[in-house]
Design a protein around this nucleic acid. Structure first.
Lengths: 123, 123
DNA sequence: ACCGTAGTACGACGCTTATCGTATGAGCCT
DNA sequence: AGGCTCATACGATAAGCGTCGTACTACGGT
């Protein structure tokens, strides 16, 4: 595809991101997504925030590409949803879907993370 | 070591296994341990059993060495405890420790696994 | 029309992991 | 004592993952 740029696969206005249907979210995948310290950190920040957050709003000690990678893992495993708004990409927890599928799971993980952070003297 | 057989490193009577102290158990490690389908299966069986279980009591579609591997991961990450009884090795969930560290976490994971199994028509 | 900013794509690298097979060790039973 | 069974140790192998840097795309503002 030499000269054409927009017809490659672009749908319409906003770029679209692939999200798994609720029914396709697997427990092992969710646990795996949460098992990484960096991603757990992202999820904690997202859970604490009222609104959806920009990727860059979450400070992480990793490069931008690595950051993209972690957000994608979270999205593809059904933990967060993402959508483009202008040049930014907004992120939010899929609380409703997860609560419906695995009642109480996310809350207990977040609570466990809080408790452990307190125990270890972090925040 | 040609002729010597027993002095290689054998301690005393019962072989001893390394377990992490409760304070050293990390949430990310526990989640990681539970994120594998095979190990989640082991944990579910262990949770359903009243008594401690022999390794071989849990049927897994993997080789024996792989089985040993998964049990060790669960033990080293603080999810189960193991002890030798005669020729067998008994396994049990570290329910108390985990409940103290991460209240409700194990229960919600087990419940989530049950729900998902029901949804997928397995058991 | 241009540039800057936000994020992606892609390839690379090193480490971890899930799996296996075979050989070995530890304890029970006859 | 000898054999049986449960489980380990030790490679080996192949796949996956976290990380990075650089090059690229997509929007929005001036």
């Amino acid at each position: 595809m030499p000269t054409e740029t927009t017809s490659t696969r672009a749908p319409s206005g906003a770029r679209s991101l692939e999200h798994p249907d609720r029914a396709d979210i697997r427990l092992a995948d969710v646990l795996h997504a949460l098992a990484d310290p960096m991603r757990l950190r992202i999820v904690r920040v997202l859970a604490a925030a009222e609104d959806e957050l920009n990727c860059a709003d979450i400070e992480l000690p990793v490069s931008k590409s690595t950051c993209t990678h972690h957000f994608r893992v979270l999205r593809e495993h059904g933990v967060i949803h993402q959508l483009y708004r202008g040049t930014a990409k907004m992120n939010g927890l899929r609380r409703d879907d997860l609560e419906e599928l695995f009642p109480g799971l996310v809350d207990s993980v977040l609570r466990a993370a809080d408790l452990q952070a307190g125990r270890l003297g972090e925040e």
